[in-house]
């Protein structure tokens, strides 16, 4: 069946409109970050980087960004190590304890974050751990672990046992098998899982509110600022974050979409 040119044009227009409505709001802060905003209206006459310059002086936001990165990177590192260890263990056989462990790993991801946060809060109080950056990192690790674990487990199952058996068969020790055979084949899954875990940690708010001491992460800071109204430098911040996120998504897509080894190392 052939469509008439008019129908094709109309369809394209409708599609375009939908895209503008859906994704337009995302681009508004990017565009406005390059112009001066005064008394709630944008001065379109002149492009400048004033907003970005102002952002560098906004200590509250900068500290929050720093905290977010510290928390995110620490949680990613911790969850990658834990996720790999647990996935290796759970993949090595079947047992009740393994099923239970897997359930516990998934629980915080499946429960509403407010419940996870409250449980952690109560736990920290009971064992008298003062709330600090450390407790935020623990909270985020617990939250992202399920995703990291799952990603690694799926890859391990894809690798199968025969490659591991072949390594032992050729005389390798367990550490040699891990570093020479498993890790290179897990690498892309680890990178992909790490990026996704970082993204999750980046905008985690509910658990963070409950387990933070005096520290602010970026979402907490933005949330606090909402009551006072945003300053123009926030537009610049949003633009930067969007750029960063796009890069991250590209990396994640490159490493998480399975592909055959076409020769060059992935």
């Amino acid at each position: 069946m052939k469509r008439s040119p008019l129908a094709t044009l109309l369809l394209s227009l409708v599609t375009l409109l939908v895209f503008i409505l859906l994704y337009g709001p995302i681009f508004i802060p990017i565009v406005t970050s390059f112009f001066t905003v005064k008394y709630g209206s944008v001065d379109w006459s002149q492009m400048n980087l004033d907003a970005y310059a102002k952002l560098t002086g906004n200590e509250g936001v900068i500290e929050a960004v720093e905290n977010t990165f510290i928390v995110g990177l620490s949680a990613v590192a911790a969850s990658l190590v834990l996720g790999t260890v647990i996935a290796l263990h759970c993949n090595s056989g079947k047992s009740r304890s393994r099923a239970l462990l897997q359930f516990v790993v998934f629980l915080p991801f499946l429960m509403p974050p407010i419940i996870t946060g409250l449980s952690l809060l109560i736990f920290f109080r009971e064992v008298s751990i003062d709330r600090s950056m450390l407790t935020i990192i623990i909270g985020h690790t617990v939250f992202v672990l399920a995703l990291v674990y799952r990603t690694i487990l799926v890859r391990l199952q894809g690798i199968g046992f025969s490659m591991i058996e072949a390594s032992y068969d050729l005389g390798a020790s367990a550490p040699q098998t891990f570093f020479y055979v498993l890790l290179p084949n897990l690498k892309s899954a680890l990178i992909g899982a790490g990026v996704l875990a970082f993204a999750l940690s980046f905008d985690e708010t509910m658990i963070t509110i409950l387990v933070t001491g005096t520290q602010n992460t970026l979402p907490l800071r933005l949330w606090a600022m909402m009551r006072l109204g945003f300053t123009p430098d926030i537009n610049a911040l949003v633009a930067i974050i969007l750029a960063l996120t796009t890069v991250m998504v590209l990396i994640a897509a490159r490493y998480l979409i399975p592909k055959d080894f076409a020769g060059a190392d992935a």
Binding site: S162, M163, E165, A166, S167, V181, P184, N185, D260, F261, D265
Partner: peptide, 9 residues
Amino acid sequence: FQDYALFPH
């Protein structure tokens, strides 16, 4: 091995 089990990397 039957499936060769070569190391792809």
